[in-house]
Simulated scan of single mutants.
Amino acid sequence: MADDHTHVQDFFTARAADWDRRFPDDGPAFDTAVVALGLRPGDAVLDAGCGTGRAMPALRAAVGPGGTVLGADLTAAMLETAARAGRGHDGLLLQADAARLPLRAGTLDAVFAAGLISHLTRPGPDLAELARVVRPGGLLALFHPIGRAALAARHGRRITDGDLRAEANLRPLLARSGWTLRSYVDEEARFLALAERTA
């Protein structure tokens, strides 16, 4: 597992400084996905695998000044870029593994996770860890600013039957991990799966 984490950290450390400049047009897609999460003023939300914190301003706007926004990422360089961009003003930035969160059970109302699922070492247990920290009825948004086909094409690949984000694979994976898939969108300009924490 440490080797997998090292690979992820190496990948993102090398790209952290330029990350936001590489994807300058993603902001509206993040904003729309946060709106779909349906957060309310005063809610507590985690941006899991927050990277440079691009979702954090929208998350802060959704929960208001009385809410709690946490941004957790494994890679220090991404968090440093987030802090330089001022995103630490929108919430608390934490260096933490989404598979072992330093949070009590049931303390959050929601988790937002952009691009996270493809970097999880053990998707089932890791999604169960996200479920652990969310109250029953709380929500999970698995998001990417482009759809599965567009993302595969960007990397010179094709979508395979084993893609975890395919609805047929994601629905049972979430169900085994404490979530119920409520809606699923996979289109050219957006991937967004919304799930509810089961009781």
Score class of each variant (00 low, 15 high):
Ala149Arg: 11
Ala14Cys: 08
Glu188Gln: 12
Gly88Lys: 14
Leu116Asp: 04
His155Gly: 13
Ala168Gln: 09
Leu120Asn: 04
Ala33Gly: 10
Thr75Arg: 06
His155Met: 07
Phe30Val: 07
Leu103Gly: 09
Ala195Asp: 02
Thr81Asp: 12
Val63Gln: 06
Phe191Asp: 01
Gly124Glu: 15
Phe191Trp: 02
His5Met: 09
Val8Ile: 15
Ile146Glu: 12
Ala85Gly: 02
Thr13Ser: 15
Glu129Gln: 00
Leu37Met: 02
Leu74Arg: 10
Gln9Val: 13
Leu46Trp: 03
Ala99Arg: 09
Val111Cys: 05
Thr81Met: 08
Gly42Val: 00
Gly115Cys: 06
Trp19Met: 08
Asp10Asn: 15
Arg154His: 12
Asp126Val: 04
Ala193Gly: 08
Ala153Pro: 00
Thr75Gly: 12
Asn169Trp: 04
Ser118Arg: 10
Leu127Gly: 04
Asp163Arg: 00
Ala61Lys: 13
Arg104Ala: 10
Phe112Gln: 03
Leu164Met: 02
Gly115Ala: 00
Ala99Cys: 02
Met1Asn: 05
Ala16Ser: 01
Ala152Ser: 12
Thr81Phe: 03
Ala62Glu: 11
Ala33Lys: 03
Ala99Val: 07
His155Ala: 10
Ala195Val: 06
Ala141Ser: 15
Thr107Gly: 13
Thr198Cys: 09
Gly147Leu: 04
Ala189Asn: 14
Ala105Lys: 09
Ser183Pro: 02
Ala152Arg: 15
Pro172Gly: 07
Ala44Met: 01
Ala83Gly: 15
His7Phe: 13
Gly178Pro: 00
Leu130Cys: 02
Gly124Lys: 03
Ala131Ile: 06
Thr121Asn: 05
Val63Leu: 03
Gly71Ala: 09
